[in-house]
Design a protein around this nucleic acid. Structure first.
Lengths: 221, 221
DNA sequence: ATTTATCTTAAATTAATCTTAAATTAAGGA
DNA sequence: TCCTTAATTTAAGATTAATTTAAGATAAAT
């Protein structure tokens, strides 16, 4: 296991680094919030451990910044504060766990392992094209700060077109692919779904991502 | 160390507050059971010390009420009663220790430290999301001061969704995960459990934490 | 063994999505 | 240009999926 520890207290930082190493936990130690922020994106950590009170950038502010940037990492807050409203503030800001100082190293280890165990099954799976991000996990199409949800058929259709971006896909090919070979739906169905997609796409960027090639099919340009 | 002392005897209360403060123990003194109950959730105490006999709400009833609410704090009962059945009753109701009046302050201090040091049987194992706290130890979902108990299947289901928060988990994936691959339960079973979860969640906060993505699955937003 | 709690199933209701048809618009060829 | 064909658009109807309720089955606890 590899963790990033943001802790300004020299003594505690050194001690934790040593004790955790003995438990086979690899610790990268940042001495303040700014340094921790630099390191977060440089490597992949199983858990991020932030002290609440730190110079430059406090643990809670670092937490908020990372969550604002959609960082999904597991974050554990260390705090001397014991007041329940602080705990709630931390958890509401997106912390996954917290530990009140002084704490037992064994407990910290237990919590680190507990956080690690929560493995997510889905790694983010997206198709990116000209600023559009088609997200397979949320069935949504995103552009800058806007987002639209797609329905099952719409998603399948757009996904297929985006995977084969630049290529003209014949209408009957799309019908086979999305509705199945032996399906006997009217081909007008395709038109209707293309229409819905265009409507949603233009709500993001006011442009037409899908080009129609008359007599042949459609294409994502 | 910070403790909450529930003691109706003015003289004893004042005395203990003073003597313990000298030992560096911070004492919050409640003059009856009702007052103590109000204070328990307002702050975090290392140990709760309750006198058995108190007006309004006795120490033993307060103890039972807190344990009924799944409160995990360390509780020490003070009593003039020496009868063995009272002692058993106290411990059976979930008290962690017991001290018979009159007692030596030094002994109280020793027991307080002992309770503090005592390792938690359960390391807190929770998933936190948007103010909700899913507790693996008590199979409960908590929000602010409210709490609901979840049944085994409900818990497994919500835990899986919360671990993968923000991601849409397909129905068949959930069925495999919660009921097992070779299980042949009706998939309507999933609907029923989702329904129960939603009912319980909305009793906490009147909102729907679980989003359905038609034709695909469910997602904790 | 009996009670209690939990899980599962079935059936009815509700809601979302898909499909169709028909009217409209645009493109290409005689 | 006009006619033919293909594509777009709209809205209503059909279909499928999800929700809800309640009752029956199973498992757990006393």
């Amino acid at each position: 296991m590899k963790i990033l520890l943001a802790e300004d207290d020299e003594h505690l930082g050194l001690l934790l680094t040593r004790l955790l190493k003995r438990q086979n936990i690899n610790v990268k130690w940042a001495k303040d919030g700014e340094e921790a922020y630099e390191l977060v994106y440089k490597d992949n950590y199983d858990v991020l451990v932030f002290d609440w009170m730190m110079p430059k950038l406090s643990g809670i502010d670092l937490l908020k910044r990372l969550r604002g940037e959609k960082h999904q990492g597991k974050i554990l807050l260390l705090t001397a504060k014991d007041a329940i409203q602080d705990r709630v503030a931390g958890l509401n800001s997106g912390a996954d766990d917290y530990l009140v100082k002084p704490f037992d190293v064994a407990e910290l280890v237990a919590r680190l392992y507990a956080l690690c165990r929560r493995k997510e099954i889905y790694t983010s799976n997206t198709i990116n094209h000209r600023g559009y991000v088609l997200d397979a996990n949320s069935y949504s199409l995103n552009y800058k700060d806007k987002s639209v949800e797609l329905r099952a058929k719409e998603y399948k259709l757009l996904e297929f077109l985006m995977i084969n971006k630049g290529q003209i896909i014949p209408r009957d090919f799309l019908l086979d692919r999305i509705w199945g070979l032996e399906s006997d739906v009217t081909d007008n169905n395709l038109d209707v779904h293309i229409r819905m997609l265009r409507k949603k796409i233009s709500s993001l960027n006011d442009e037409d991502l899908i080009t129609t090639v008359r007599g042949v099919g459609y294409c994502v340009k």
